[in-house]
Structures are given as structure tokens and as C-alpha cells.
């Protein structure tokens, strides 16, 4: 698989480390139901056949965390966005799972 790193260009997936679901947001640890929310955050995963957002770390490249939009059936990659840019731009209100 080739991943289009916004900084480095298209690179082989071997250079990257995979983390998983990028649609989750770390819950507010002070919330009354924090225990339940963290349980879901840590353990509950959708496993979509198709479009999926995932964290990939360019460990052997620019060391950016990237939010990839990837089709899990075809491995086609629609977008690769740096996490930092996307996190600072979007405020993601109430995005908790």
C-alpha cells in the first residue's frame, strides 16, 4: 500500500505505524460518566467495510500523525491529513462518542 504523506509524498506503508480509528475523541475525564465513556473510547470499534478514518504515524519519515480516509475493502486512500492541522482547525464540539 502507498500512503500519500502530505509532507513526504507517496510512501510505502512499511514506513508507517498504524493506530486505528480516527473518529474517536478522548472523553472528558471529569465527566460524571467518564468510566463508561473511556470504556467505549478504549474498546469499542466499528469495523466498517468501506470508507474509514484511521490514524497512521509516519514513523520512518516526517513523524507526522496522519488522519487517513481509506477504503478498507480496496485500500484506496481518499485523503491523508496531518492530525495537528486538522485538530487545531476543527474545534469538534461534542464530538465524543
Amino acid at each position: 500500500m502507498r500512503i500519500p504523506c502530505p509532507y513526504c509524498g507517496a510512501r510505502d506503508a512499511h514506513e508507517f505505524a498504524y493506530l486505528g480509528d480516527a473518529t474517536l475523541t478522548r472523553p472528558d475525564p471529569a465527566a460524571a460518566d467518564a468510566a463508561d465513556r473511556f470504556h467505549d473510547y478504549v474498546y469499542l470499534r466499528d469495523n466498517p467495510a468501506g470508507r474509514h478514518q484511521e490514524w497512521w504515524y509516519h514513523a520512518n519519515g516526517c513523524r507526522q500523525w496522519l488522519r487517513l480516509t481509506r477504503d478498507t475493502r480496496t485500500h484506496a486512500i481518499e485523503a491523508a491529513e496531518p492530525a495537528r492541522r486538522d485538530a487545531t482547525q476543527a474545534d469538534m464540539p461534542g464530538a465524543a462518542s
Partner: peptide, 18 residues
Amino acid sequence: AAKVYQHLEFCLQVLWPE
């Protein structure tokens, strides 16, 4: 060593970019 570095980058780039 590599895992912790990656974890710290995750904290800085994904969890708390501020």
C-alpha cells in the same frame, strides 16, 4: 524507546495540539 516517542507525538499532534 520508539514506542514512547510515538506516544508523545500522538499526545502532541492528536490529543492536545494546543
